[in-house]
Amino acid sequence: MSVLDEVPATEADSAVPDSAALYRTIRFIRRFEERAVELVKAGEIRSGIHPCIGQEAVAAGAVATLDADDVVLSSHRGHGHLLAKGCDPARLMAELAGRATGIDRGRGGSFHPSDFSANVFNATGTVGHGAAIAAGIGWAAATAGSPRVVLSFFGDGAVSQGALLEGFNLAALWRLPVVYVCENNGYATTLPAGAAIAGTVVGRGEAFGIPSSSVDGQDAETVYAAVREAVVRARSGGGPSLLEMRTYRYHGHHTFELKTRLRYREQSEVDSWLGRDPLLIQAARVAEDERARVDAEVEARLDEVVRFAVASPYPDPATATDHLHADGLRPRPGSAR
């Protein structure tokens, strides 16, 4: 069962976002990530995670504009994208915890999960390299006469990658149905965007003639409106768009920062962004009793999610070389037979 099972199926056709549904998604992602951080601290998620806490409105607002057949390409900070797209949260949490019941049987982990049942094709760990993969998926859809649109997420660090720009070029050249969403949270790990990006994020898209704009990424309904316009354009043959979502992560780049306490951000900066918390912004649009109902449901569901994940078995080491090749080809072992 998915977090979005209660979202009306007609939502993607609507010009008006469903405020309560967006609140539910944001709340679910926020609490999922907080529970995941607890599991990191408890040693259940051994890789640590890249929490998207603070950025939930981007995932919620952007993905709410999509149809089930539309494809999402995610990033290393991608749990929110998967949850918003309808990935089973219990199996996602199990994946983060490296369990056999995970969506990728423990092979994708937190950093590069995929869920083809939800049309989340991958989250490549090579920053920026999803852009041309998105173009290829979009091309395959367009040539097949399918209305499918591809939503490709990446961070501000990716805009300095040549491969990203190669993807932009192909998508623009052939007017492919791709929506590029840059989650500019201000930092590529520790490097401030201002110290990394000559020009602007939207300038990267404009250079290719791609309609590009910068959007308040803390407001899910603003995100929704901007992405919806881009999705409509893509679906009608109008080609790609680039949307820069100005956002912020409240946690570190990765949970290792819980221990290392890197000091690359001023507390005053964090505090100022906490004043624009996407959860609170969306909460203000939903009646209090409705919120209370949603919050209770989310907690109950997440209790099940965490229970499922930690109770799930670890993968059998004997299966370590399963799925290396489609035909079952196995590598020779690393020690003498």
Partner: peptide, 10 residues
């Protein structure tokens, strides 16, 4: 690099 990734997507 772009068209090799494009092929992966397709």
């Amino acid at each position: 690099q772009g068209f090799t990734n494009f092929a992966t997507g397709a």
